[in-house]
């Protein structure tokens, strides 16, 4: 009991003591980089539509996302993406490129444990939840629509 109180008091004290860093620079950079990545996506999309006028808007989006994912994986491999992430934070995590980075980075990191147990097993160690939650949530939404459609 006594320890609980002491721990609580200590944790509160530590919270006070933690250096307050200025939030503005990282907010600014996350905005800048995040906006820039979206802008890049829009640019690629519009160029694709311009170059291949007969593909559908939906296919163009598909290609755009694949190109962004490719670029992010490549930058991850080259060791550039983590440098961007250090400055941009949310700006390079939230876009689809962040998803790509979180699949590519453990794959590259655990290459030393072999192709099967390293690259393949560890590939989803960070982005796995994204696929699991996404699949479950979409199935949930689909199920609700199916039930509604019954009536």
């Amino acid at each position: 009991m006594e320890n609980k109180q002491r721990n609580l008091a200590y944790n509160n004290y530590v919270k006070e003591k933690i250096p307050k860093t200025k939030a503005w620079p990282s907010l600014f950079y996350s905005f800048l980089v995040g906006g820039a990545i979206c802008l890049l996506g829009q640019g690629i999309n519009d160029l694709l539509l311009l170059a291949m006028p007969n593909i559908s808007q939906q296919s163009a989006w598909g290609y755009t996302l694949i190109i962004l994912i490719f670029v992010a994986s490549l930058l991850t491999g080259l060791g550039v993406y983590d440098q961007i992430g250090k400055v941009a934070g949310g700006g390079s995590i939230v876009p689809i490129t962040g998803f790509s980075n979180s699949i590519a980075s453990p794959s590259i990191e655990f290459k030393s444990e072999g192709i099967v147990y390293g690259i393949c097993v560890k590939m989803f160690s960070i982005a796995g939840p994204v696929i699991v939650f996404g699949t479950v949530a979409s199935a949930g939404v689909g199920l609700i629509y199916w039930i509604i459609s019954l009536f």
Binding site: F31, G90, I93
Partner: peptide, 16 residues
């Protein structure tokens, strides 16, 4: 595109 994309990412940074 830039403003909305940037804003969404910035909300992510606020969460972080």
């Amino acid at each position: 595109v830039f403003l909305i994309g940037g804003l969404i990412c910035m909300i992510g940074e606020v969460l972080i």
